[in-house]
């Protein structure tokens, strides 16, 4: 499947799901005007990718995990529901036997962002790695 790339704007994050390198990144601010319109195609893409991967899973293509890098500077409360949906899809990948790894980045001193990651991880019962970005 082709990569999913959506360039960042002032109010929406960069989405870079690179199927070759298996590095899936969400970077920036998330407060799009229409949050549903922004996130639904991403969730649909993930469904499709998860189905395709699990149907063709073998030792070779599952040797390295898909690495999800959440590098969110800020997200509004209406985005949080959809970020949880993305995390749930990642968990679906895991239940299908697809190897995954989740890195949750936060700016040095931004405890709220770290805690947001911890809450999401707790909700899906899957551990994240937390990486502090030095200020």
């Amino acid at each position: 499947m082709d990569a999913l790339i959506i360039e960042a704007t002032e109010n929406s994050p960069l989405i870079s799901f690179d199927t070759d390198s298996k590095v899936f990144e969400i970077v920036g601010e998330s407060r799009p005007e229409n949050v549903r319109e922004f996130y639904e195609p991403i969730l649909a893409w993930m469904d499709e990718y998860g189905t395709e991967m699990s149907a063709n899973l073998n030792e070779e293509n599952n040797a390295n995990p898909i690495t999800f890098n959440f590098k969110l500077e800020y997200f509004n409360s209406s985005s949080s529901k959809f970020i949880l949906d993305i995390v749930k899809k990642i968990y679906d990948f895991h239940t299908k036997g697809i190897k995954i790894k989740v890195n949750w980045y936060f700016d040095e001193g931004d405890e709220d962002m770290q805690e947001a990651g911890e809450e999401l991880s707790k909700m899906v019962k899957f551990p994240f790695d937390y990486i502090e970005i030095a200020g």
Partner: peptide, 13 residues
């Protein structure tokens, strides 16, 4: 969540 968000999360946040 409606199109423009709003699930009563804002105040809690």
């Amino acid at each position: 969540i409606s199109e423009r968000g709003g699930a009563g999360l804002g105040i809690i946040d």
